[in-house]
């Protein structure tokens, strides 16, 4: 187990496998029925984000579609467990608070070299920690 410090954006706690996105994310282009990325030419195209801890650079697209995408994933239960951002944007932050997705940013730089896709993580936004579980 190793714990990394982070900064809380939206409260809550989530545990799951980590999935890194190289590209910014628009949740409207994730199929709410399956949790699978349907955006062409995206690094996560065809991958499922359900139950994952999603690490992404930042959000993209208008507030309308971003909030709607996150809303639909919440309703179907196919959304991620928590988000780790590299650079927060107003739209994603507001949507996450309203829809109660735990979100953090400013994770210790070591996290990005030591954690790989598929590792199990616990994100505790309130404690401002990200823990790599064994």
């Amino acid at each position: 187990m190793k714990t990394y410090h982070c900064h809380k954006i939206a409260e809550g706690k989530g545990e799951g496998e980590v999935l890194f996105s190289e590209d910014p994310v628009n949740f409207y282009l994730v199929d709410p029925k399956t949790g699978v990325f349907i955006e062409p030419h995206h690094s996560l195209s065809g991958q499922c984000i359900t139950g994952k801890i999603l690490v992404l650079p930042y959000g993209k697209a208008s507030s309308v579609v971003q909030a709607d995408g996150m809303f639909q994933l919440k309703m179907t239960g196919n959304g991620p467990k928590a988000l780790i951002l590299q650079a927060p944007d107003t739209t994603l932050v507001a949507s996450a608070i309203i829809l109660e997705y735990p979100v953090v940013d400013k994770v210790d730089p070591a996290f990005f070299s030591e954690v790989k896709n598929g590792d199990r993580l616990c994100v505790d936004a309130d404690a401002q920690t990200v823990t790599k579980l064994d």
């Binding site: 507030s63 309308v64 971003q66 909030a67 944007d89 107003t90 739209t91 932050v93 507001a94 949507s95 309203i98």
Partner: peptide, 10 residues
């Protein structure tokens, strides 16, 4: 700022 619909409403 580049407000979201929701943050502008808040």
């Amino acid at each position: 700022n580049r407000e979201a619909a929701q943050s502008a409403l808040c």
